[in-house]
C-alpha cells in the first residue's frame, strides 16, 4: 500500500474523531443562512477512487476557475474504503467511485443522493520498463515464476480483473492482492512484480514508467464511474455544483478523454 494512502486514511480518521464538534457548529449556523443556489464558495471535499488521482485535480482546477472562491480538496483511495469512511460519517461533500456496486453501498446506506455516471474505464496489463518477463498477453500471466499483482475482488479494479480473466479463460495466481489500483501500479513501476492488471488510464498516467499490453475490447471488462453528493454534506451547494459540473460540462468529458477514460453513455 502506498504511503499517501496511509497518511490519508490517518488524517481522515482524525477528521472523523473531531466531526461531532464541527458538525454541531455548522448545524447551528445553517437555518439562518438564505438559500443561494448560484452562490457557491468554500471548500468542497471530494472522496474519489484512486484511479481518478491524476484527472480529478485537472477537472477541479477548471471548476475553481468557473467558481472563484471555491477550493476543492481530495481524498483518494480504494472505492470501498471511501464508502466505508462516508458511511461512518466522514465529513465529505462528494463521492466518486470506480464502480456502480460500490456506489450502491453508499446509496443503500442512505449516505449519498442519486448518483450520475460520468466515465468508463477498462483494463490493461502493465509491466516494468523493458518487460523483464516478456509478457505479450493475458495468458503469459499464468506462466509459473511470473510475479503478478492484481487488485482484491472487493475493490472495483479487482472485480473488473476477475471478469477479464474469466472472459479470457485465464487462471492467474497473483503474489499480492492490493486494495487500491495505484498500489498495483506502484509495484509495477518499482519493478517488484513482472506484471499488474490495472486500468488503461493508469497505464496512460504512468507514462514511460511502465510498458503495457492492451486487451482487445471484445475480451475486456469495463467499469462505470458514478459521482454523487453526500447527504448532509458540510458544503452541500458547492457539492451539488461540483457534481453537476463533472456530469454536464462538455469540456470535462474532453479532459476525461485526454486521460484515457471513455464516455459512459
Amino acid at each position: 500500500m502506498s504511503v499517501s494512502r496511509v497518511l490519508l486514511a490517518w488524517s481522515l480518521a482524525t477528521a472523523i474523531t473531531v466531526t461531532p464538534l464541527v458538525g454541531a457548529g455548522a448545524a447551528g449556523a445553517a437555518p439562518g443562512r438564505p438559500a443561494a443556489p448560484q452562490q457557491v464558495s468554500g471548500t468542497v471535499t471530494v472522496s474519489a477512487a484512486s484511479s481518478l488521482t491524476d484527472v480529478f485535480p485537472v477537472i477541479a482546477a477548471a471548476f475553481m476557475k468557473k467558481y472563484p472562491g471555491t477550493n476543492v480538496k481530495f481524498n483518494f483511495g480504494g472505492s470501498p474504503a471511501l464508502v466505508e469512511q462516508i458511511n461512518a460519517g466522514a465529513p465529505v461533500d462528494v463521492l466518486a467511485t470506480a464502480s456502480e456496486p460500490t456506489m450502491w453501498k453508499a446509496v443503500n446506506a442512505g449516505r449519498v443522493n442519486a448518483p450520475f455516471p460520468f466515465a468508463k474505464n477498462s483494463m490493461a496489463i502493465a509491466m516494468p520498463p523493458g518487460n523483464p518477463a516478456g509478457i505479450t498477453g493475458l495468458s503469459d500471466l499464468s506462466r509459473p515464476g511470473v510475479l503478478v499483482a492484481v487488485c482484491a475482488v472487493a475493490v472495483p479494479c479487482g472485480a473488473a480483473t476477475r471478469d477479464v480473466l474469466k472472459l479470457n479463460s485465464v487462471v492467474v495466481k497473483p503474489v499480492t492482492l492490493e486494495l487500491d489500483v495505484r498500489d498495483v501500479l506502484g509495484r509495477v513501476m518499482a519493478d517488484e512484480v513482472d506484471a499488474g492488471i490495472v486500468y488503461v488510464t493508469d497505464v496512460k498516467a504512468a507514462g514511460g514508467k511502465v510498458t503495457s499490453v492492451t486487451i482487445p475490447p471484445a475480451s475486456n471488462a469495463t467499469t462505470t464511474y458514478p459521482i454523487a453528493t453526500v447527504i448532509g454534506a458540510p458544503n452541500a451547494e458547492a457539492a451539488r455544483a461540483f457534481v453537476m459540473y463533472v456530469r454536464f460540462t462538455t469540456s470535462v468529458q474532453g479532459i476525461l478523454r485526454a486521460y484515457g477514460f471513455a464516455r459512459p453513455w
Binding site: 480504494g78 466505508e84 482484491a152 472487493a154 475493490v155 497473483p174 503474489v175 492482492l177 486494495l179 509495484r187
Partner: peptide
C-alpha cells in the same frame, strides 16, 4: 505496514491477521 508494503497481501502466504482484517474491511465489516 511493513508487511503489506514489503511482503504484499496474499491469503495463506503473506496475509497475516492484521492484513486479513484490513482486507475484510473493504468487503464485510
Amino acid at each position: 505496514g511493513a508487511t503489506i508494503t514489503f511482503a504484499g497481501n496474499f491469503p495463506g502466504v503473506t496475509q497475516t491477521m492484521p492484513l486479513a482484517v484490513y482486507t475484510a474491511l473493504e468487503s464485510d465489516r
